[in-house]
């Protein structure tokens, strides 16, 4: 299916919010793929980080909102460290999560975790998850 594009679709409220929440200019990205080349979690993602940015540039925000990529970003900032344009993707991923959480509620239920996990996993991981994956 063709993606219908117009000035309106390119400047949607969602795109504007993502730029505002993340503080990043999406059009700074020139799609070199450096982020995707180095991302240690990309193998598990359904969409490469660079591809996610491309969808956002084109106003195809839903693609990214429905992707698991933002949820598999561990904010390790390998991408940011090497991005030739200094784009902090971890901030953009955080903005996407924020929007999805606001619209759709929690991404995970920490209550689902086994008692063994709860006892063993360092609480800093729970706190981080709580902050990143719940509304």
């Amino acid at each position: 299916m063709r993606a219908r594009m117009s000035a309106e679709t390119l400047t949607s409220e969602l795109t504007r919010r993502i730029e505002e929440i993340s503080g990043e200019n999406l059009l700074k990205c020139y799609q070199c793929g450096m982020c995707a080349a180095g991302c240690p979690a990309a193998f598990a993602m359904d969409m490469l980080p660079s591809q996610a940015i491309r969808f956002l540039q084109l106003g195809l925000v839903e693609e990214v909102l429905n992707s698991d990529t933002p949820w598999l970003c561990a904010a390790c900032q390998t991408c940011y460290a090497r991005c030739p344009k200094g784009l902090d993707l971890s901030r953009i991923m955080e903005a996407i999560r924020e929007i999805v959480l606001q619209e759709r509620g929690d991404y995970i239920d920490l209550g689902d975790l086994s008692p063994r996990d709860l006892a063993e996993i360092p609480q800093q991981a729970f706190i981080a998850c709580f902050r990143k994956y719940t509304a």
């Binding site: 240690p40 979690a41 193998f43 598990a44 949820w71 598999l72 561990a74 904010a75 390790c76 390998t78 991404y107 995970i108 920490l110 975790l113 996990d117 996993i121 800093q124 991981a125 729970f126 981080a128 998850c129 990143k132 994956y133």
Partner: peptide, 18 residues
């Protein structure tokens, strides 16, 4: 290289492979 950090809580695959 990132070890997966808190991803262990959401993705067993990511955590194990990273």
């Amino acid at each position: 290289e990132c070890c997966g950090s808190y991803l262990a809580v959401v993705s067993a695959q990511a955590a194990a492979e990273m």
